[in-house]
Write a protein that binds this DNA or RNA. Structure first.
Lengths: 118, 118
DNA sequence: GTAATATATGAACAGATGTTCAAATGTTCG
DNA sequence: CGAACATTTGAACATCTGTTCATATATTAC
């Protein structure tokens, strides 16, 4: 609505392509979810946490120690990662052990690596 | 340095695992670069732009029209995407045509999709 | 050259995001 | 039970990020 406010008020638009591609786009929600997933990998702390968990499941304290960060900061990030189903946890006595939910982290990280090294 | 300020001042740390994993971690720079790459996919606008370009190369104006966004906003994002080498451009008369640099976008997006649909 | 078109750019602003700090929760052990 | 331990949580703060608006650059057409 209010089509051409700051848009191209002009003729550069290729109507045929625009119409075709408009129809091919996934709906808003799918794109939102995807972006949300990749956001998880877009922060250094979370990235480090995932790398750590690729090596071994671990309690919060261990991760904090390895990364040299506050236990609280790690806990906050773990919660976010958990909400996106990339990691899970189980209680083991006083500790809570975090681990990767499945192999998706590995494959996504690897795809990223491939792009970097070129 | 200043090891245990807010860290685990306590005994929960599993020294063996911690030491082992510390050594296995990639260096700071690699992780930073990876996170930076995934940041590109972590924003709805950029995600949409990439989806659009998966269908067809296109000028800035077309993308703005398809997404119903300002030409300026798109231009800003294109610059960011270009800086991460995910897209490139060529001039064609008055227009500048943007297109995906290689197949990485497709494979990364697909990996993401796989995680979503489960 | 000048006007028109297509895109880029910079500063400003608003909203999102990550860390810190202090305090709360929940578990184990004596 | 109460003390100690491991983790979570919430509010506050600072930083980062994306969009807007106004303006600048660059190409084409006359």
């Amino acid at each position: 609505m209010a089509d051409d406010m700051q848009l191209c008020e002009t003729q550069c638009v290729h109507k045929d392509i625009v119409e075709k591609v408009k129809k091919l786009l996934p709906d808003e929600e799918a794109i939102y979810d995807l972006a949300d997933l990749f956001k998880m990998f877009g922060d250094t702390t979370r990235m480090k946490i995932m790398y750590v968990l690729l090596e071994s499941e671990m309690c919060v304290c261990d991760i904090a120690e390895i990364l040299g960060m506050t236990q609280s900061a790690i806990s906050h990030q773990l919660r976010i990662l958990k909400s996106s189903k990339l990691i899970t946890s189980r209680r083991e006595g006083k500790s809570i052990i975090y681990f990767l939910a499945d192999d998706h982290v590995r494959s996504i990280v690897n795809q990223g690596m491939e792009h970097i090294f070129e």
